[in-house]
Amino acid sequence: MKETIGVDHLEKVFHSQNDMEITALTEMNLSVPENEFLCILGPSGCGKSTLLRIIAGLEKASSGKVFYNGREHTKPCREIGMVFQSYSLMPWLNVLDNIALGLEFASVSKPERMAIAREYLDMIGMSNFGKAFPYELSGGMQQRVAIARALANNPDVLLMDEPFGALDAYTRIIMQKELLRIWEQRKKTILFVTHSVDEAVYLADRIILMSGNPGRIKKEIAITIPRVRERSNPRYGELTSELLALLEGA
């Protein structure tokens, strides 16, 4: 299968103020095939967000390389979109202008980008909120807009950094369903960072389990339960318990 994202011997060392070296990531090797839904699961501080930021090109690796479609990737680009945990919408732009922002950077004409933005607005089920401002929306709606904004750019790869982490349990479940629906509709390669075992089991084709100090890959698990996954499925429960046990040992 064609590899979309490759990570090769990646290491990230931070220098703290008193010149201490903190290794956030070490010996990271990863190969993500086209259209895979990959979840990166791990406890807080295990470097999973750092890994995502390096793949996005927002941070530099200390050593090692990131490949996108076989070519080395170091700078942010439109083909690799990203959704952040929260508060990433431009507060001075309304919902439509936010969704159209990436297209504006790409110099798409105003009528054209507004038409595309409308289409994605409909997709996230917020047709009546085009003129609303981010502060008028609930956290769940803001995240939907952030996802629409990333998708409107039509990226190949979508990096998601705990995008539902700040949402309540109910909204979170709805958003997970919606994300899967969107992913199945417009095939993308998704790298999804989370610290929720349930979320990872529900969403992923494959889970990369990370452990901290220093951050590295502990285990890889393929999830073969067919979608839509029922949380009552015994296999679902087994996997969840297994992963929780592994996390405790992480």
Binding site: M82, F84, M90, F105
Partner: peptide, 27 residues
Amino acid sequence: VRQTLIDSARVLGASERDIFFKILIPA
């Protein structure tokens, strides 16, 4: 200006000029 806003713009493909005029100044 919140770093997340600048990062969001970068991953959407903003040039340095876009960051300056379309993010930093309005923010």
